[in-house]
Write a protein that binds this DNA or RNA. Structure first.
Length: 583
RNA sequence: GCGCCCGUAGCUCAACCGGACAGAGCAUCGGAUUUCUAAUCCGGCGGUUGCAGGUUCGAGUCCUGCCGGGCGCGCCA
């Protein structure tokens, strides 16, 4: 609906060639806004104020000129100039009636833009290390990423979702070792579990299920002989490092890898299932190991070397990140010959572009904020536009129960898992609460509120509006009445109550909200909108009966609430929240 | 010390490249039900947008400095 107004203003400016220079680099869409105050009409534009200075004119005089140039339209009731030079546009009722007809016609597709061919977007999120079950922080990444993906798709983008599996490196060895030690414990060996190992209960579960091919019970003395002391007396990293080497010796490299791969695959599958149950699904699970096994890291480094982007210093190989805006140069190959994590990141992001994605969005924890300039520098050095990588940072989640903060710690194994959270509050409340706040705000997740089946809980408030509409139609059927939608559309002009006008206006905003939320990667806009829409509906419900004797009025009202039901359902669907028929 | 993010009502948060008297929910106070689900609605109370400057016709929003909080600043992953 906004596009209709924008077009009118654009046509008006086009009819005023003397403004062409002043308006040359003005993005017109941004000057047209919904009004907050109905006294200011439905839409307002500040275009006259924006152009006043470059055009060398008084804003109100300029506004008058623009208003005079606005072409006649059936959609517009009147246009007024207000305040310092705002142009207020009042739309006629017919424009809103047409929008409701469009909602009914497009149904589940209402609010979706036609598919754009470019840019192709790759959205990477969660990407938690496969060393244990997801915790509540990952849940926020999942809910946010999935919703942003849905929003981008609704906005017409071609978007794929990817999970980067950090299945290489030392942490995987620690995982493999942890599982083996638990397996040995289960086979009657008494030992002190390493302080740096993964201590969660799930490790025992994996150990119990592990395929024992190539695994042997070893003598405790053989295992621990010559291993440096663990913390607190010794260095826990040295201790576990020596144990990993010992494990590889005793089991053989293949034997150890066998345990390690089984362990990580078990955890990865658990993560995938957990997320799937949460309505968070990925197109690709991209393995870090595969980067190495296909030599993509070496290939990327070779390209950098060819471009003179690498140099040797202190026995290590450095990348000239500073040249591309990073705060300092970064090591890609350590003195000991091992490639850094950053080297695989460059290769990975390069590969994303090579796979044909034009635009990359990474959703990362806020503790990774230093990472964006680095990887952008890598992309730029590889010949791709640094601006083609966008990083959205997620602030942390704090759980509260009865007003008390719950602590979380991965290593201790005492964290609250996403699965536990989902079981406790339900998927709908969890999805909703996770995206209620802007991603750059800390999220206080109140378990009691999320569970409460009361008016305190915004999820139920919105779902209840949907269920109430469904209930109205059940009542209609019980009364042996039916709804003639075509007749309802013809009779929309009968709907002149304040609550009806408010509902018309709210409904017509939906496509704009989707675009806004998608553009800003800001699901909370949709959350707030749905709450407002539900509020308009509940007010209407309380003020007026829908199932009235006057057939024309009844059909019109039922048509209006049908449109409301469609929009609520579509919006909730993007949030990954169900729209119940009954509560 | 340097860098990034945040600071809005008692609490939790909105506010669309800067726009009209800064909006919701909770809490609190008062009201609405012979009714299509009261998981609802209507109204009242509540603000120097951390502080001080600056830019602008116009600043919660942009710039500078300060105060407070979070996170980062590895040849870790």
């Amino acid at each position: 609906m906004k596009s209709v107004v924008t077009k009118l203003v654009r046509d008006a400016l086009a009819a005023l060639p003397e403004l062409a220079d002043a308006a040359a680099d003005l993005a017109l869409e941004t000057t047209v806004e919904r009004t907050r105050d109905p006294d200011h009409g439905d839409f307002a534009t500040n275009v006259a104020m924006r152009l006043a200075k470059p055009a060398g004119m008084n804003p109100r005089a300029l506004a008058a000129k623009i208003v005079a140039a606005i072409p006649a339209s059936n959609d517009v009731d009147k246009v007024e100039i207000a305040g310092p030079g705002f142009i207020n546009i009042y739309l006629g009722a017919a424009a809103f009636h047409a929008e409701v007809a469009l909602i009914l016609e497009r149904d589940v597709c209402y609010g979706r833009q036609p598919q754009k061919l470019t840019p192709r977007i790759l959205l990477e999120f969660v990407s938690a290390n496969p060393t244990g079950p997801l915790h509540v922080g990952h849940g926020r990444h999942g809910a946010y990423g999935a919703t942003v993906g849905n929003l981008l798709e609704a906005a017409g983008y071609d978007v794929d979702r990817e999970y980067y599996v950090n299945d290489a490196g030392r942490q995987m060895d620690i995982l493999g070792l942890s599982v083996w030690l638990r397996w040995l414990e289960a086979h009657s060996m008494k030992l002190d579990f390493p302080a740096a190992g993964y201590r969660g209960e799930y490790i025992r579960d994996i150990a119990a299920a592990v395929d024992t091919k190539g695994i042997a019970v070893v003598d405790r003395g053989v295992l621990l002989n010559g291993i440096p002391a663990d913390a607190p007396e010794g260095d826990k990293e040295a201790h576990i490092g020596a144990l990993i080497e010992r494990a590889k010796d005793l089991l053989g490299k293949d034997g150890f890898n066998h345990i390690r791969q089984q362990s990580l695959e078990s955890i990865r599958q658990d993560i995938e299932q957990d997320l799937a149950e949460f309505g968070v699904v990925f197109d690709y699970w991209y393995s870090e190991q595969s980067l190495e096994s296909t030599n993509r890291i070496d290939a990327a480094l070779a390209i950098l070397r060819d471009r003179d982007m690498l140099y040797e210093k202190d026995g290590a190989t450095w990348f000239r990140a500073e040249q591309f805006g990073d705060e300092k140069d970064r090591v890609v190959i350590r003195e000991n010959g091992v490639k850094t994590y950053f080297a695989s990141d460059i290769a990975y992001h390069f590969d994303k572009r090579e796979r044909g994605y034009d635009y990359l969005i990474d959703i990362l924890g806020s503790d990774h904020h230093g990472y964006a300039p680095r990887v952008s520098a890598g992309l730029a050095a590889m010949g791709y536009d640094a601006g083609s990588l966008e990083v959205e940072l997620m602030q942390f989640v704090t759980l509260y129960r009865d007003g008390e903060k719950l602590s979380m710690s991965t290593r201790s194994g005492e964290f609250v898992t996403l699965r536990e959270l989902r079981n406790e509050v339900g998927n709908d409340a969890a999805r909703f609460f996770y995206v209620m706040r802007s991603n750059d705000q800390h999220l206080d997740f109140d378990l009691e509120l999320a569970k409460s089946r009361s008016n305190d809980n915004p999820v139920y408030y919105i779902q209840y509006a949907h269920a109430r509409i469904a209930s109205v139609f059940r009542q209609l059927a019980e009364k042996k009445l039916s709804h003639d939608g075509a007749n309802g559309c013809r009779g929309l002009a009968l709907l002149v109550e304040a609550q009806e006008k408010a509902l018309f206006a709210a409904l017509s905003r939906y496509p704009e909200v989707i675009l806004l939320a998608a553009t800003n990667r800001a699901p909370q806009h949709l959350v707030h909108y749905l709450r407002e829409l539900a509020n308009e509906f509940h007010s209407y419900y309380n003020a007026h009966a829908f199932i009235v004797d006057d057939v024309a009025l009844r059909d019109a009202r039922l048509t209006l609430i049908t449109a409301t039901r469609i929009v609520i359902s579509n919006g909730l669907s993007i949030l990954g929240v169900s729209a119940p028929e009954k509560m």
